[in-house]
């Protein structure tokens, strides 16, 4: 079950948590929004074909989820 799937438990799903110590901005599954640098995209959901089913992150500093992992993925693991 993914961090942002609709039927995950509330704490596993992406949610707002002002001042969280695990914001999306530091998570390896997050990459920047294509236009607005204060927004982002969650890439934790991987498809059967090896692709990414993204979710928009409306606030990369104050959103988090149960799948948070610090780090950065290589370009090969993105789309």
């Amino acid at each position: 079950m993914s961090a942002t799937a609709q039927n995950s438990s509330p704490n596993m799903m992406m949610h707002e948590e002002t001042g969280t110590g695990k914001p999306c901005i530091t998570c390896k599954w997050q990459i920047a929004d294509p236009t607005n640098p204060v927004k982002g995209q969650c890439t934790v959901n991987r498809t059967q074909m090896g692709g990414v089913w993204k979710r928009w992150v409306s606030d990369v500093y104050n959103k988090t989820c149960g799948k948070h992992e610090e780090g950065k993925l290589s370009f090969r693991e993105h789309v």
Binding site: T43, N45, T47, Q48, M49, G51, V52, W53, K54, W56, V79
Partner: peptide, 16 residues
Amino acid sequence: GTRTGPTPDGRFGGDA
């Protein structure tokens, strides 16, 4: 494709 959910052509969400 990554920003588009599953579609009625049989494609899964996120696929190209």
